[in-house]
Design a binder for these strands. Sequence first.
DNA 1: CCACAATACGGAGACTGTCTCCGGTTTAGC
DNA 2: GCTAAACCGGAGACAGTCTCCGTATTGTGG
Lengths: 221, 221
Amino acid sequence: MTSSETGRAMLDPSPGTIGVQGDSAGGPRQQSPEKSPRPMRADAKRNYDKILATARIVFTERGTDSSLDEIAKRAGVGPGTLYRHFPTREALVDALMQDWTDRVAADADAAIATGLPAREMLLGWFEHFIGHITLHRGAASKICAAMDDPASPMYRKCRVMGDANRRVIDHLDQAGDLRPGVDAANVMRLVSGVASVADTSHAELDVRPMLEVVVDGIVHT
Amino acid sequence: MTSSETGRAMLDPSPGTIGVQGDSAGGPRQQSPEKSPRPMRADAKRNYDKILATARIVFTERGTDSSLDEIAKRAGVGPGTLYRHFPTREALVDALMQDWTDRVAADADAAIATGLPAREMLLGWFEHFIGHITLHRGAASKICAAMDDPASPMYRKCRVMGDANRRVIDHLDQAGDLRPGVDAANVMRLVSGVASVADTSHAELDVRPMLEVVVDGIVHT
DNA sequence: CCACAATACGGAGACTGTCTCCGGTTTAGC
DNA sequence: GCTAAACCGGAGACAGTCTCCGTATTGTGG
């Protein structure tokens, strides 16, 4: 949190502006562009939004393992309604991920735009990334699991973030700043792992030292 | 698993021989050397062992999040008995950790004894370490959490493994093979994080590439 | 504006897993 | 063998997940 704030201050772009080329959007019901006859009833959308807003609060307060029935209750709907809209907990987390994926992508482009030296650029980008995916306790490890699992509802959004990371890596690679053979997907896994340990650790530990090792293992000597 | 096996073949020491200076032992009831009047009744020890043996099997089959009541059932005891011996799931995992901590410590010393170049030595040691802590699915992330949480029952054993790692790191550092300022605890966290992502990932992914980045970030340029 | 089919709601409850309490049983020491 | 201490185990309280289906709401065609 603190590190996220610090990092953010360092290279904050005109926030929420830069367009993301990825899929994004894809809110309720419109996942498949074709074959979507009806746009969703008014009361349905109302409840959908209420559940999402409540989940955002509860997940922030108590993490992504909070009781789903409680979220339903606090949203003022029955459990059945919640489970119809979000068949699994992952689906709910996925819907919430929309909040960051755009920002993450924007942060990646902003990091590139800073033109800082490779080390600083990577450090800043990684800290931003981690700041986002650790917003809700428990989310980081779920992302780790979804990253390489195409069957996961979160897979798509993981790819958007993966692409953002690839842009940063490719940019530095083309500038000759990285060691040969650096794999963006691998870096993504590693940094997500760092996020995961920071998230699960009961102690409030600083991710910086771990990131420095990772960065040193990536940048050209 | 494969990587573990591979690594193991590479530097297998006379297995289970090298003494660990740490606490180790500490089996049922004797945690506190003083103030331990009675050694534990025969039937109690019998059940304790039966539960442990069953847990070893079930945790290997289905991971450390298996139902504890089922373990009790398969061990032929009531849930009450299981919970009396192991008040929390962590306590049970901790008891099972005894299986590896000794081996892990031995592996560290064996790695040092190989006298391989820093890169290879670290790679081998890390792979061994990860091979052990990912034996039961879900254990790695529990270890990540316990590592910096002195209140956890697993904390002690984490320290034993942490000390083993420190020996390897210190050895290489004194040989001048590492970058200045490398922190063993930090490395431990990082490598455990790698184990954690490998463990939670649904895809059977290779830890080697991630470890190479970590190692490159540690060794002297 | 109203009827009515499609759609969505929500809560009762089945199911699973955690953990406790306590009457009954086993053990160890005499 | 006898007794007190230690231990057993299962009934059951509790919490969370998830489903089924009778009821209510919506929006559309007449």
